[in-house]
Amino acid sequence: MVFPKLSTHFLATLSLIILLLLWQGFAVYLNNNTLPLPITVINVLWQEITTGELLYHLGVTLLRLVISFSIAMPLGCAIGIVLGRNQQLNAFFDNWLVIFLNIPALVTIILCYVWFGLTESAAILAVVINKLPNVVVTIREGTRALNQELLEMAHCYNFNKRKTFIHVIWPQLHPFVMAATRSGLALIWKIILVVELLGRSNGMGYQLHIFFQLFDVTSILAYTIAFVTVIQLIELVLLKPLDRKAKRWRR
């Protein structure tokens, strides 16, 4: 350890402050519109919040995120478990999975809009298709790594399917589900912005598109800060407590 006496809390705060200072330094040094001062960005952020503009678009994007996430996760988990447990099905669908994994997000989005029109459901579908293969692959790995000895124990003591799933399988999949959730959240919100940029008339992506056309870097940064904050909040308020709860049995 380089700073043996400093708490991790302090280090985290320090790193944020240094990042801000670096930003400030570069902005002062460059002194032009492409990199505004942090304080200018904060002002704009505050303005956008008070007019309600930012909250509306952020809300719309978050709603899309929640909907596509709650379709992709359960579906992906189900498919992943089935493929992990069944070798033949896995052999059959493996190619599909590899293909879907490697189709660029942009292609899926464009095709969804072309085939299903510039609609809300096409937008959601595009996000789900992008996210699904990742969940499936992660959960499939988790299912393959299931402890055979515990499954045998469950079988021997006549656990029914439901009991086996809740008490033997799910706790083992939990870390994989959390990994899929984290990476999925990051992936989804990046893709949603592109989806909105290409074919929606509200949401963060749409706003960013407009700011880009106006070369309004200040607003772009303000929106970015808002979004990053929200995602961090989700991590802190939702995911971390879930993690803690699931890990309480560990030594």
Binding site: E149, E152, C156, Y157, F159, K163, H167, V168, P171, W249
Partner: peptide, 25 residues
């Protein structure tokens, strides 16, 4: 028949308490 099996390793579910492990069977 009901078969009770004491395996070579205990094979307890680590994420359930001792009590829950027994109650589950």
């Amino acid at each position: 028949p009901k078969i009770g099996y004491v395996f070579q390793n205990p094979r307890l579910l680590p994420w359930r308490t001792v009590r829950e492990n027994i109650e589950l069977v």
